[in-house]
């Protein structure tokens, strides 16, 4: 009883000091004013024209990093396979068993072996890519540029909130062409981080969504042959006449629904992760210490759920594409 009261008082003190005194009194005095974060929707370009017509963005760097991490984990897990697993192999056996159980539950034993690699790859890749956003250094370490176009940058202060790694005052790299154009009035400076969470770029999520939906069609054709396309263009329906014409119309609507799947896949992942990033930025701006921990916990959860939802929906769509429409009617 007495101990519980002490814990409560300690938590209260931590909350008041962490959320009130430190960010509002101590931090402004030491590091200068806390500034509203500059948020950019498209991935920032790190290197212009790496190949002709191809810019290297920081979200692409994050995607490649997630790929490498996933590959390294995979190689570590199978480096020395033992009868009695230990270490990384043990961890991966737990993960793989749980995922495989899920696939069998939805798709059945026969199809699970076929679908499982796609399901597991999408899930693990997205898990790593989403959780990367929570690492310190991601989204904060980068090059400093002059803001251009319509962008509102950070103002240059005496106590600038941006610091070089060795603690010295950063040197600003003025972008070429800024002076030639003349009409661009620079309004401040922005940070271009080296790494930014991969799914905050619509290009990744849209690419993954198209892959997933194409995969659904491929699995459907593999299982049912050309008859799979009767789902869209219902020729047997027309042959039947009567209500069959309506089935034909419904089949045409299926094409639209397939396109809607792409959009819904892409925007669900992008929206969740990008909103999470903005949430973390804004929370850190409002209350710089203690408080963001809560939201980091939330983002840990959201990242895992979104990876799971993306993989699970792919699995469910593939499974339903592999079931023949007419078999279902016969029952």
């Amino acid at each position: 009883m007495n101990r519980n009261v002490l814990i409560f008082i300690a938590a209260l003190i931590v909350a008041v000091v962490g959320c009130g005194v430190v960010p509002n009194v101590i931090l402004p005095a030491v590091t200068g004013p806390v500034v509203l974060p500059v948020i950019q929707l498209p991935g920032e370009v790190l290197i212009h024209d790496l190949f002709p017509g191809f810019d290297l963005t920081n979200t692409l760097v994050a995607t490649l990093l997630a790929d490498i991490v996933l590959l390294l984990f995979g190689l570590l897990a199978v480096r020395s396979i033992k009868e009695v697993p230990s270490g990384v192999q043990n961890l991966f056996e737990v993960i793989i068993e749980a995922l495989y159980g899920m696939v069998t539950q939805v798709a059945g034993h026969k199809r699970a072996r076929q679908i499982f690699p796609w399901f597991a790859t999408i899930f693990l890749f997205l898990l790593i890519a989403n959780w990367m956003e929570l690492l310190p250094g991601v989204d904060s370490i980068g090059l400093v540029h002059q803001a251009h176009g319509d962008m509102q940058g950070y103002e240059l202060h005496e106590n600038w909130p941006i610091a070089a790694i060795d603690g010295s005052r950063p040197v600003v790299i003025a972008e070429e062409g800024e002076h030639e154009a003349g009409e661009h009035i620079s309004r401040g400076y922005v940070v271009t981080p080296f790494v930014r969470a991969a799914a905050t770029d619509l290009n990744l999520t849209l690419g993954l969504a198209i892959t997933a939906v194409v995969l659904v069609q491929v699995f459907g054709v593999m299982e049912l042959g050309p008859a799979y396309f009767y789902k869209f263009i219902n020729i047997p329906g027309i042959a039947k006449g009567g209500m069959g014409y309506m089935d034909f119309g419904v089949g045409l609507l299926e094409i639209v629904s397939e396109l809607a799947k792409v959009i819904s896949f892409a925007f669900r992942l992008f929206g969740n992760i990008f909103a999470g990033q903005v949430l973390l930025f804004v929370m850190t701006y409002l209350v710089a210490t203690v408080m963001p921990i809560v939201f980091y916990g939330l983002e840990l959860f959201v990242g895992a759920v979104q990876a799971f939802v993306f993989a699970m929906l792919t699995l469910v769509f593939i499974t339903s594409a592999m079931v023949s429409h007419h078999e279902g009617e016969a029952h």
Binding site: S264, F267, G271, A275
Partner: peptide, 18 residues
């Protein structure tokens, strides 16, 4: 899964807002 479908609509609104 059901929540993911319902949530997609909210996410469309969120993307427009963003």
């Amino acid at each position: 899964l059901g929540i993911a479908f319902a949530e997609a609509v909210a996410i469309y609104a969120l993307v427009v807002a963003l």
